[in-house]
Design a protein around this nucleic acid. Structure first.
Lengths: 241, 241
DNA sequence: CGACCTGTTGAGCAGCCTCAACATAAGTGG
DNA sequence: CCACTTATGTTGAGGCTGCTCAACAGGTCG
């Protein structure tokens, strides 16, 4: 069997091509070339290992980040330390958008596996938003998309039962992997059962039980974090929106 | 006792002063006057009555909206028609930001009481984003703030119990009314118990029961939608983040 | 090899939901 | 203006989904 890293993602030599702001970089080097912006929008790259915090609550935040390869979870906290995971982010996705409001992060980002991120300082981003219309439009589009994703999670947390939650979760990952030309029916989950449960608003044990039930029903096969979906259609009907 | 409308909001003659894009309008008429933008950013105003839909799922959406006076609830739906209310919006707030991603609304907006909205077409907004840096920054800030608010709701839906949910909800409204120079401790809720329950991910009956318990504990007094909070500090400690 | 982390399964319980009945306010039409 | 209908809010009883606590198996890593 493939190792976890090999199955989902492969880190290639550092280029701007695969990062979440690929579009931004492309625009800078392409259609808007008349702007003669001397440098790339990415000012720094950082290599992080499992458990590292990319940013934490209350910290001043001067940049947004794009994941080049690897994966990161983001979460918010209650006063007494309870955690709600708000997203699992994989290569090509942007992080830190909620900090733009007041340059201060209200959430935390923890690295799940060895991860490379591209850093875009907020002032550089602002400069590009000023000069490159397509960059500006893309930033707004990405933020709008994040609001949309959050709405879907709220629907899940507020109105779905355990089966629907897990089915929705698996479908989401299936689609995201497919978009990156990985298999939509066979993939490695990058996070623990406990993290899945936290994200979906249910106990770790309940996640296990639903996985077991899905497996007994012939919907899928699991072996720890490796998932093989056998009946995407039925999974969709369970997920229900 | 004051009527519901009179207690919370008073509609003044139509100016741009009180709407959510006041800042935008101000900028257009102020610091960036050198831009010589001929018109105001608001192109249309609409008067809506209780039950009207401002926009609905799947509809093409060409504008965002600012509430001048009144109130509107927004919600998303599952395939089988379950609803999750994602927000209650009052005067001065912006709606429809999630539609920018693909010019199509994935949520619905239903009017709770007679309401006046200002309409800003997306292309006009884009034009102002191009020419007025402060408008651009403000739009991004507002979207960032919405992401932040949604994160708080996810925390509530995923990790809080019934008491914490209602306390958090009441505090949120207390703060919003205070920001508008209304009393933070005495106000009219603009929505039904059923809507509160839906928003907070709990049954209408549970909302009632928690209200009753809070009242028995001397935290507050209610009479239908009129709420008087007696112990904001204790409510805060219950809300827990 | 032992310590630890992660995942799985069982038993019992509790918080909240569902269903039902009723009270009161608000809306509607004659 | 009143009688009727409808919408909204409140309270009770009982049941169910999913949580908590606990034990254990299998990987992983020093």
């Amino acid at each position: 069997m493939l190792s976890r890293a090999a199955a989902n993602e492969v880190c290639s030599p550092i280029t701007c091509k695969d990062c979440g702001i690929f579009g931004l970089c492309r625009e800078v080097n392409g259609p808007d070339i008349d702007l003669r912006l001397p440098e790339t929008i990415v000012r720094n790259r950082r290599l992080l290992k499992r458990g590292d915090l990319l940013y934490r609550v209350g910290e001043r935040q001067h940049a947004i980040y794009a994941i080049r390869c690897g994966s990161i979870k983001t979460y918010v906290l209650t006063d007494d330390g309870r955690i709600q995971i708000t997203g699992f982010h994989i290569s090509g996705e942007l992080l830190g958008l909620s900090a733009i409001a007041d340059n201060q992060s209200t959430s935390e980002a923890k690295v799940l596996e060895t991860t490379m991120v591209c850093e875009v300082p907020l002032d550089v981003l602002e400069m590009y938003c000023e000069r490159a219309p397509s960059v500006r439009q893309q930033v707004i589009k990405i933020m709008s998309q994040e609001i949309l994703d959050n709405q879907e999670l709220m629907l899940l947390l507020g109105k779905k039962n355990a089966d629907e939650r897990l089915a929705t979760f698996l479908l989401g990952f299936s689609r995201r992997f497919q978009k990156r030309n990985y298999s939509p029916s066979k993939f490695n989950l990058i996070m623990s059962r406990s993290d899945i449960g936290n994200y979906l608003g249910m106990a770790e044990e309940t996640v296990c039980r639903v996985f077991t039930r899905f497996q007994d029903d012939g919907l899928l096969t699991t072996e720890r974090r490796q998932v093989q979906i056998h009946d995407l259609a039925r999974l969709k009907s369970i997920a229900c929106g």
